[in-house]
């Protein structure tokens, strides 16, 4: 079972109240949750703090969710990004997943289901890292 305490989650959403509440609820579930309110701040945060999973709002002022996603996947390809939006839009959803988002979820979202998604995303990242580790070992031999 995935150890939740290990998972470092970054929440990115310009709805300050929403994102603060969500971060609090995640901390209660022993996730290491931080939050920022724009794409720019997210990229700055990721530059300073190692992170496993990003929960990303799609519609934000400044650089929007899709652009932020693109930057994250380019600079930190192992980080898993889950898009979470209040505005259902298939085009953006598909675009996001083609860029490499782990999933596209819509508000309102039950906190349990969101935590499961985070666990699944984290597991994917952990396995990926393990794979790379094994390959490095093999090539070293």
């Amino acid at each position: 079972m995935t150890q939740l305490e290990e998972v470092r989650v970054l929440l990115v959403d310009d709805e300050v109240e929403f994102v603060d509440t969500l971060a609090k609820r995640m901390k209660k579930r022993k996730l290491k949750a931080s939050s920022v309110n724009s794409g720019e701040d997210a990229l700055e945060f990721l530059g300073q703090h190692p992170t496993d999973v990003v929960i990303l709002d799609v519609k934000m002022p400044g650089i929007d969710g899709i652009q932020t996603l693109r930057e994250i996947k380019q600079q930190y390809p192992l980080i898993e990004v889950i898009m979470l939006t209040g505005h259902a839009n298939v085009e953006v959803a598909i675009q996001g997943m083609e860029i490499g988002a782990f999933d596209y979820l819509m508000k309102p979202m039950a906190i349990d289901d969101l935590v499961y998604k985070i666990q699944d995303a984290y597991k994917k990242k952990a396995i990926q890292e393990e794979k790379i580790g094994e390959r490095l070992k093999a090539s070293a031999v």
Binding site: A88, V90, I94, M106
Partner: peptide, 20 residues
């Protein structure tokens, strides 16, 4: 319509996930 749109988006996302 919000139900219709959210539902259609959700199913597209999941079918796309499966293909991926």
């Amino acid at each position: 319509m919000s139900f219709v749109k959210a539902t259609c988006t959700a199913i597209s996302v999941n079918v796309f996930q499966m293909i991926k």
